[in-house]
Design a protein around this nucleic acid. Sequence first.
RNA 1: UCCCCAGUAGCUCAGUCGGUAGAGCAGGCGGCUGUUAACCGCCUUGUCCGUGGUUCGAGUCCGCGCUGGGGAGCCA
Length: 469
Amino acid sequence: MDAGTKTWRHDRPRIREILRLESSPGRISVEGWVRTVRHGKGVAFLAVNDGSCLASLQVVIDAAAPAGATLPQVGTGACVRVRGRMVASPGTGQRWELAADELEVLGPVDETYPLQKKRHGPEFLREIAHLRPRTNLFGAVFRVRSRLAFAVHRFFQERGFLYVHTPIITANDCEGAGEMFRVTTLDPFHPPGAAGQAAWGEDFFGEKTGLTVSGQLEGELFAMAFADIYTFGPTFRAENSNTSRHAAEFWMIEPEMAFADLAADCALAEEFFRYLVKVALQECAEELAFFEEYVASGLTARLEAVAAAVFERMTYGEAIEQLQRSGRTFAFPVQWGSDLQSEHERFLTEHVVKGPLFVTDYPVELKAFYMRLNDDGQTVAAMDLLVPRVGEIIGGSQREERLEVLERRMRACGLVPESLRWYLDTRRWGSCPHAGFGLGFERFLMYVTGVENIRDVIPFPRTPGNARF
RNA sequence: UCCCCAGUAGCUCAGUCGGUAGAGCAGGCGGCUGUUAACCGCCUUGUCCGUGGUUCGAGUCCGCGCUGGGGAGCCA
């Protein structure tokens, strides 16, 4: 399995392909961006990268050759087209190199080009998010992102799941998964209606709308027709969260399975998580080696361990006991009924089980209305998957399929059942047990790459106060 | 939103006790028998985040603000 090695144009082989050839293809033409220029007395070396892989192609230019005349125009960052013959490299560090006779500058650079042939900090690179994909780190991150996004679809498609596009614009503002961004075409300077009163009825959709915080509710509707479905799309939260783990716009994967209970939900989450880790190990080895060296040492061993491990399972009640028995003092007290804090979750996954951990069956007061009430009347069939370093990476539950119980839970949560009539209809007619979960794609990428800030695994991050690029 | 830390050359950073700013890299010029973020020599580069204050004198001390980072809450 090694997708992405074929080029779509025979006259522009990718550097990735060129570098892995067994024999010289003879004369070729290569296009890409210059990473470094090294000048010798009669010869110069360019490292040319086209984004197809981490490695750059070494281009050798004889100062006396025609290409040598163009050389003074080439600096770090320039876009070039090079023609010449592929030859075995006499130097160490690369097998092949391109002995250039033609060098064309497609896009010159000047001395103000901000990227240098040295390491930059991620904070600086975030300020030039339009240029950072040209760096080793972000090249690697976004190649992994692309490969894993494809693997997400492969996983579900191979298992017969239907891919459903749930709406981006929604009128559900009662799910409680977070603050919503408003979607409106009303004139902010001259809104209709009386002062101090919003006239949503006059708005584009005739009611108050916003960007989705989850595709789950619509996903459930499809699960009750296609049995196994998944969504994979952008999600928006207008929370004023300023952390390395939150973004206002992120991508979420949400499978939903009919005829599944919480145990089946966990089983799928575990299989899915392990599948993606294996794909990363098998198909992104070059990138992982880079992360191992420059981002997070021990990464590969951790991923290999996870790929082989059976994930631990623990109920919320057992988790509370473990924390109380640990003898540790936590900033937040541990008692049945209060939510697990970050410090508690990290202790459980990093010290108690030292690996991925499902915590299940939380007190009903802590969780959303749609989670199925357990027979004890105290807990709901919810699960969170906790992993070291990142914390909560998956949240899911078996859904409440009993109409009366669901309506009662909605009222208890301060929701008006009538506002979600269409959702309740699935329980009214042909209801069935079902379960699902949500995986934050960026959080998974953080886990797999070792990158510690969510802003560095999404191409153009949106966070409070920042929507540039 | 709360708590903590930081902001000095294009980048990474040093700057002692308050005495008017420096190194590496980048850039320019020159050298070098084929380099590997090459190397060697010379040269250029500053609103010390902004603002107000203390002081004979502030990059340094104090207040306020802005930006960035870490942590918390919320969550994926």
